[in-house]
Amino acid sequence: PDLGLTQLFADPNLIENLKKNPKTSEMMKDPQLVAKLIGYKQNPQAIGQDLFTDPRLMTIMATLMGVDL
């Protein structure tokens, strides 16, 4: 199971919303991170391994779920 990750990354406004959010806007200036996020739309399971190697993803996930870290 993808634990709902498919829906989190399926939002067509995902990148724009993250660019507008004060907690994630600075991160979204990294083209490699943006490319990763776009890739998760097609393969949400890929985030599982990346969560352990890129701490920014935890902040992004929390933001998408509405959790304040």
Rank of each mutant, 00 (worst) to 15 (best):
L33W: 04
D2L: 14
E16G: 06
D54R: 00
K29D: 11
L18Q: 00
L5V: 13
K23R: 14
L37V: 06
M61A: 13
P22R: 03
P12D: 08
Y40I: 08
F52K: 15
A62E: 14
M58P: 09
A10I: 06
I60V: 08
L51N: 04
P12S: 08
D30W: 02
K23D: 08
L37Q: 00
L5Y: 12
I47W: 10
L5F: 14
T24Y: 04
K36A: 08
L3M: 14
P55L: 07
K23E: 07
P1M: 11
L69G: 15
G4K: 15
N43W: 06
N21E: 05
Q49V: 13
T53R: 09
T63Y: 07
Q45L: 12
A62I: 11
M28F: 02
N17W: 15
G4I: 15
L14Y: 11
D11V: 03
L57D: 00
L5D: 06
F9Y: 04
M58I: 15
Q42T: 15
Q49E: 14
Q45W: 12
Q32P: 03
I38Q: 12
I47C: 04
M61Q: 02
R56D: 09
P44M: 04
D54H: 02
Q32C: 04
G4V: 13
N43G: 04
L3R: 11
L51Y: 10
L51C: 07
P1E: 12
L33K: 00
N13D: 12
G48C: 09
R56S: 05
P1D: 10
E16C: 06
P22N: 08
A10Q: 14
D2V: 15
K19S: 11
D50I: 04
D50C: 04
G39C: 08
D50N: 05
K23N: 12
T24L: 15
K23C: 05
V67W: 15
L57N: 01
D68E: 06
M65L: 14
T53S: 12
K41V: 12
Q49H: 10
A46R: 05
D50R: 01
D50L: 05
L37R: 00
N17K: 09
V34M: 04
Q7V: 14
E16L: 04
F52G: 11
L8N: 03
E26K: 05
T59H: 07
M28V: 04
F9P: 01
I15C: 05
K29F: 04
D68N: 03
L37S: 00
R56C: 05
T6H: 12
P31K: 12
N17A: 07
P12Y: 03
Y40S: 01
Q49C: 09
D50K: 02
D54K: 01
G4M: 14
N13F: 11
P44G: 06
V67H: 11
I38T: 09
T59W: 04
T59V: 13
L8V: 12
P1N: 13
M61D: 00
D2K: 03
L64Y: 05
L51Q: 13
K29T: 12
P12E: 11
G4D: 15
R56H: 09
L3S: 14
R56K: 06
Q49A: 14
T63G: 04
P31C: 05
M61I: 15
T59Y: 08
D11R: 04
R56E: 05
K23L: 11
L37C: 02
K20M: 13
E26Q: 08
P44D: 04
L57E: 01
L57M: 10
A10N: 12
N43S: 08
F9L: 13
L14R: 01
D2W: 14
M28T: 02
K29P: 00
F52V: 15
T24S: 03
L14A: 06
P1V: 13
N21P: 00
